[in-house]
Structures are given as C-alpha cells and as structure tokens.
Amino acid sequence: MTDFKRSVLMSRVRQKDTGPELVLRKYLHAAGLRYVLHNRSLPGTPDLIFPRFKAVIFVHGCFWHAHGCRRATIPASRQDFWTSKFLRNKFRDVEDINSLQNLGWRVCIVWECALKGKSKVNPDLLVSDIVGWLKQDVRFLQVEGRRSH
C-alpha cells in the first residue's frame, strides 16, 4: 500500500460514532437505557455515560487498543512504530480507567469483536450483561467476543 493510500485510509478512521459504537447504542436504546455521549470533561472521553448509575462505557476497537484477538494485528510495515503506538494506547487506557474510578465512576469496556464478526456476542446476552452490571455495584466489566482469544 502506498503512503498516500494509507494516509487516506487512516484519515477515515473515526474516533466517535464508530460502527461498533452505533451498534451498541442501538441495542441499549432499544432496551430502554438512556445515556449521554462523549462527555469531554471525563478522562478518556467515554463513548456512553450513564450519570444515574455513575457508569461509563468505552467501545474499543480491537486493532487500535491491541486487544489480542484476531482483529488485533500488527501491520507488516513499520512494526516498531505500531508496537509503540499500541503500547501508548494501552497505557493511556489504563490511566483513563484509573482516573475515572478514582472519581467514583464505574467502567465497562466493550470490545469490537463482541459486536461484529463470527465472535459477536448474542445481542440479548450483551444487553443483559450490561444492564446487570449497571444495576450492581461492580466497578469494572469487560465484554469480549465469544472466541476472542
């Protein structure tokens, strides 16, 4: 792939309102849950915020956040750059989660592989897990695809 083509491709990558995020929002809204989107005053700018439950959800792309599933590959070119970038992303994620929890927020991470592809989690189970988590006093939840590792 040429540098120009890669640049065009990368410029189209969204930070909010991604496909997996829109899928999750659709499921949760259909279940009657209401949320606030992308509050920049919170560490990490969570994708979904549930003020009533003092809870936030991040929808993480497996590639960008180096999940470890089959979607989380390292490009063949410039591997040092990508490895460094993924490590910085993971470090930033941990810092954001710790900051949110120190502020009293509960955090859920829903991985892209749980929302699409062959490893997709049944939408009813996904919503049930998230609703259960919201109603309990559990500080952290992570939802991964069925065959993510």
Rank of each mutant, 00 (worst) to 15 (best):
G44N: 01
G68F: 05
V56M: 14
R40H: 11
A66L: 08
D47F: 02
P43R: 01
W82M: 03
H60P: 10
P51A: 10
K54D: 13
L42M: 06
A66Q: 12
F58V: 06
N39R: 15
H65V: 02
G61T: 07
G44T: 07
A72T: 08
A72L: 06
I49V: 15
I74G: 00
S77R: 12
W82P: 04
W82I: 02
A66C: 10
P43S: 05
P43H: 07
A76L: 04
L48K: 02
S77M: 12
H38V: 05
F50G: 15
V59H: 12
A76D: 06
L48T: 02
W82Q: 04
T73P: 00
I74V: 15
F81M: 09
H65F: 12
V59M: 09
F53R: 14
T45V: 06
A76G: 10
R71S: 08
H67L: 04
H60G: 12
P43C: 06
R70F: 04
L48D: 02
G68T: 09
R52D: 14
A55T: 11
W82Y: 09
V56D: 13
G61Q: 01
S77A: 08
H38I: 00
F81H: 11
F58G: 12
T45W: 11
A76N: 07
D80A: 11
F58I: 12
R70P: 03
H60A: 11
H60R: 12
F63S: 04
F81E: 05
D80H: 03
F58E: 05
H65Y: 03
I57M: 15
D47K: 07
C62R: 09
F53A: 14
L42A: 01
D47P: 03
I57Q: 15
T73S: 02
I74T: 10
C62N: 05
P43D: 10
L48E: 05
W82N: 00
R40D: 07
D80K: 01
R40S: 08
H60F: 15
R40Q: 10
L48N: 00
P43L: 07
I57S: 13
I57L: 13
H67W: 03
N39I: 07
H65L: 03
R78F: 06
R78A: 08
H67P: 01
Q79W: 00
I57P: 13
T45L: 07
W64Q: 06
C69E: 11
P51S: 14
Q79Y: 04
S41Y: 03
I57R: 13
P46Q: 04
G61K: 11
R40V: 13
R40T: 11
D80P: 00
P51L: 15
T45Q: 09
F53Q: 15
G44C: 06
H38Y: 10
P75G: 08
R52P: 09
R70M: 03
F50I: 10
T73A: 07
L42S: 01
Q79L: 02
T73Y: 05
P51K: 14
S77H: 14
P75K: 09
R78L: 01
T73F: 06
F50V: 14
F81I: 00
P51W: 10
F58W: 10
L42T: 06
R71M: 06
W64E: 04
W64A: 02
H60V: 10
D80G: 03
V59G: 11
N39C: 00
R52A: 12
A55S: 10
V56Q: 15
G61V: 12
I49G: 14
I74N: 01
Q79G: 05
Q79V: 01
A76E: 08
A55I: 13
V59A: 13
R71V: 02
